[in-house]
Design a protein around this nucleic acid. Structure first.
Lengths: 138, 138
DNA sequence: CAAATTGCTTGCATATTGCAAGTGATTTTT
DNA sequence: AAAAATCACTTGCAATATGCAAGCAATTTG
């Protein structure tokens, strides 16, 4: 599969060993904020991930238990990718990235609207969304 | 130099376009938490970044104004890399990564000690360290 | 003033990413 | 029930990024 080498015991380094690439957090964003759950959903994202890269990233996320691969209830042809608690717990990181970007980039209004809640009440927003997402996986 | 293509207007995507690789946040960690400021300092880090990679990452961070390259006060042979406000503002992201790692990895005690403060009073810790770092760049 | 240090650059091997075109298993359409 | 479309990938190959080792010019140190 993949060679997973841990560069050090530093928490930042160890975390980046798992999701420190250009795509993993975008997949997690898709699942957390846009409820995407199938291979096709991810392929349709604005950033246009290549299909083979998507496959390897999904595998990696699954191996590290950030997501789970399940049978899709609607069809045998589909696969359901589902967030785990460990994956949902990346939300605070993603929110902080959004807030940083909000401070230093000019963002489209549609996106600013999504961020607005986290800006006004970060803790509350993260807690509420986390609770909602975790309720969904039980 | 480098081809910088913005994949989309998504804040997460745009941010990852800048620091979404395996090394950039480690350099920022070194500057924020360990007061590293020279090329040699970064090379000495536990993760053993290759010298050419370090050079390109520093250039990239500088181009995006996360760090500044200045004359070193002690010696003309040295270069001083200094955090900018934009760079210091990555601290909340790094702290959230540390807290996530603390939850899901077994970390060495020495590192747990550093994280402990952020765990007990995240907001206070981030604010205090941010203030301190920003005081240093004026 | 020779040796060491500092901050890189250069060349080359290996690994990762990206693109385009399949493929086989289902599912939908006719 | 056959044909077409959808779905989740895989495969081959080119382009790019990473990693390793050596080299180098400008200081600085002994």
């Amino acid at each position: 599969m993949k060679k997973i080498e841990k560069r050090s015991n530093c928490p930042v380094s160890s975390s980046l060993d798992i999701f420190g690439d250009k795509w993993s957090l975008l997949i997690m964003r898709d699942m957390i904020f846009y409820n995407k759950s199938t291979y096709g959903d991810f392929l349709k994202s604005e950033e246009k991930i290549a299909t083979n890269i998507l496959a390897t990233r999904l595998l990696n996320l699954e191996e590290h238990n950030l997501i789970e691969k399940l049978e899709h209830p609607d069809s045998k042809a589909k696969v359901l990718y589902k967030l785990t608690e460990k994956g949902i717990d990346l939300l605070p990181i993603i929110v902080e990235i959004q807030l940083w970007a909000d401070k230093y980039f000019t963002l489209p209004d549609a996106i600013k609207a999504i961020i607005e809640e986290g800006k006004k009440d970060k803790k509350g927003f993260i807690e509420a969304l986390t609770r909602q997402l975790k309720a969904n996986i039980r």
